[in-house]
Design a protein around this nucleic acid. Structure first.
Lengths: 209, 209
DNA sequence: CCTACCGATCGGTAGG
DNA sequence: CCTACCGATCGGTAGG
């Protein structure tokens, strides 16, 4: 009977996390109250506090759980891809293939990190870099070292790539319905080849300005 | 005396807008209270409501005032630049040359638009596209039509460019101290030429995957 | 003693 | 523009 009680507990906890993830992504940290979360998870507010010590702990649980998913996703892409470009291509395609509530957590993290306590901020910042940012940067750095990419600052290269994905991290954008594989291809191609027409001389001229 | 009263009123209003802009950028719409804004602007909370009907009106005033700045900035770049690339280059350089509190308003707008009332949302969305997004898209569309850019979706091209700038729209990022002209050059070059090494065959191979 | 909560209410603060 | 407040709701906790 203990086992079934624990299973119910885990189920409730998972339901809270799932509901809160969607709502936090939509309204931000301060824009969402514990009352609303409790309502959505069909539980009392006090019940919420049985599972999570406070609002911050619940919020951080959402972020870290998603980072674990990203960790798996990136490991898979690293293993399957051979070149820097194929690996990045796989990572971008797979992240943008996720349901928008999932990938919206990336924006949520960078957006609301500053609202957390100093301790939570530092702890989260660490795993954020270990499991996500640092991994992307490492793939790009390898590409720079192997000569596959031009010699540029890997930090700039990383943030530029993540930035390009950013518009797709919003929950209710018109872009989402359209985030098909073709659009993702366009995005990755812009990153790796740029938007200039190679057959055009004007772009090469204006480039030196 | 009316004139001097108006001048003082305008001064107070400007002080409120300046303080609130910084604080909203740091804490988001719901993360900042009218009490804190009043404190920062050295005014009573009721005094705040003398100048702005409610929180939303103050918030929207910050956004629209910045959009007017962007309007001037983009007009200037359109007039000075000749090619698509030079014009975009000017726009990006000038936006990222602004103090971080200024350009942070762009992120603030896209981030918190959903928290506004339906009416404010629609009104703001309109001028947001008229003065900013639509203008960038038009410059890129010209580049596509003239053959300077590859034939791609101008919406995707626009959001990709804005996304690349996004990391620099955060107020307290380590990237800001480093947003020198050189880094902006790297960013624009990635956009127009991509990150791949032209002398490398592997990137061309993996591209067709 | 445990678990998985509930109804009610705490001290403070929100926008107005 | 201020002092003095309001209805409601905030995050969090009491005993059972």
């Amino acid at each position: 009977m203990n086992a079934s009680e624990s299973a119910e507990t885990a189920e409730t906890r998972a339901r809270i996390l799932a509901e809160a993830k969607v709502l936090f992504s939509r309204h931000g940290y301060h824009g969402l109250s514990m009352r609303i979360i409790a309502q959505a998870a069909q539980i009392s507010k006090a019940g919420l506090y049985y599972h999570f010590a406070d609002k911050e702990e619940l919020f951080v649980a959402i972020l870290t759980s998603y980072l674990d998913e990203l960790d798996v996703l990136i490991r898979g892409a690293e293993a399957e891809g051979t070149s820097c470009r194929t690996r990045i291509n796989l990572v971008v395609h797979r992240i943008l293939a996720q349901p928008s509530e999932q990938r919206a957590v990336i924006r949520l993290a960078s957006q609301e990190m500053g609202e957390l306590s100093e301790a939570a901020q530092q702890a989260f910042h660490k795993i954020y870099y270990e499991k996500f940012i640092g991994r992307i940067a490492a793939i790009l750095q390898q590409g720079i070292e192997s000569g596959e990419l031009r010699p540029l600052d890997s930090t700039v290269a990383t943030w530029t790539l993540l930035g390009m994905m950013y518009p797709y991290f919003y929950p209710s954008s018109s872009l989402h319905n359209a985030s098909t594989s073709e659009i993702v291809d366009q995005l990755v191609t812009i990153y790796f080849d740029g938007v200039s027409n190679p057959a055009d001389k004007a772009s090469a001229t204006s480039r030196s300005q």
